[in-house]
């Protein structure tokens, strides 16, 4: 059973250019799929469309988002929000802006459980303590009483991970969750997400621009250019031999410290021209391959 199936999802700027071009995507239950591409490729946009948090300047012009078989786009808004709230969660990029600076950590984890999912306060509190222990926070009671500014960046990201897993979601959108962290903390956080994901069997859409990260935490990946999926592969196949010239060029641009001659090669202009032509052809209704 797929946790999420997206068919022909098209999103555009209101009265403006397309941002997602008939995107297809399949996410099996318990699978981690990387969404990669350069800034503006639309990778975050897919996650936002699924979670119903697209900015007001943007509209969905077509397609289906099937969450466990139900098309979210055909549900009345209230029912859609309820369903997304009950089955999905987000791990955002910047832990400092995602946490309210004037509230203690505890209620920021538990309020959603109590107000939206109808848990009792003691049950939610117990769950919060249990989750903080699971994300390896040594002193959960103190941390639950802390304010965000009293905690380090890595600690705050742990809290957001705990909070995302709180209601046992089927699907988590992780939107560049480690981009703001330095490499050693990033490694801890990625291992933590991978461990939580495996234990809870959660499907994750993992938005990132870092192919190194994809190779560590994902089973499949979609490569986007200008809102179009140019490649959909398993991680093993992709890193052995990327099929699309653009995704191959992206891989060649990724730094590789073990081989100073490889990596850090800009995507060649010829590759950009070719993929742009492909996008234009796709828009005219004549998709290649």
């Amino acid at each position: 059973m797929s946790a999420l199936v997206i068919r022909d999802l098209s999103v555009r700027l209101k009265k403006g250019p397309p941002l997602l071009r008939r995107v297809p995507l399949d996410l099996a239950a318990g699978e981690v799929r990387g969404l990669v591409g350069e800034s503006g490729a639309g990778k975050s946009m897919i996650g936002k469309a699924v979670l119903g948090i697209l900015p007001p300047s943007v509209e969905i012009t077509g397609g289906e988002i099937l969450l466990e078989g139900t098309d979210l786009l055909r549900l009345p808004p209230k029912e859609r929000r309820r369903r997304i709230g009950a089955t999905c969660a987000l791990i955002p990029q910047d832990p400092l802006t995602a946490l309210n600076p004037s509230h203690r950590i505890g209620p920021q984890i538990t309020d959603r459980l109590v107000d939206i999912l109808g848990w009792t306060r003691p049950a939610a509190d117990a769950r919060a303590r249990e989750l903080l222990a699971e994300v390896q926070i040594a002193d959960p009671d103190r941390v639950l009483r802390s304010y965000p500014h009293e905690l380090s960046g890595g600690m705050r990201q742990r809290i957001l991970i705990a909070s995302a897993f709180a209601a046992e979601p089927r699907l988590i959108v992780a939107d560049e969750p480690t981009t703001a962290l330095d490499v050693t903390v990033q490694k801890q956080i990625l291992r933590l997400i991978a461990g939580m994901q495996a234990r809870h069997g959660t499907a994750i859409l993992f938005v990132t621009h870092d192919l190194g990260v994809v190779s560590k935490v994902c089973q499949r990946l979609s490569v986007l250019y200008s809102g179009m999926v140019v490649e959909d592969s398993t991680v093993a196949d992709f890193f052995a031999a990327p099929r699309h010239p653009y995704s191959a060029a992206l891989l060649a641009a990724t730094p590789k410290y073990t081989d100073p001659a490889a990596g850090l090669n800009p995507v060649p202009d010829a590759v950009i021209d070719a993929v742009r032509a492909e996008v234009a052809a796709f828009d005219r209704g004549a998709p290649h391959g």
């Binding site: 190194g212 590789k256 073990t258």
Partner: peptide, 25 residues
Amino acid sequence: FADPLADYTQELLSAIPLPDPAQPW
């Protein structure tokens, strides 16, 4: 890079996710 001496340098190096699923990590 060939032979990092300090523990911290080794830690920094080993934390970099190489674009290679075969890298032990």
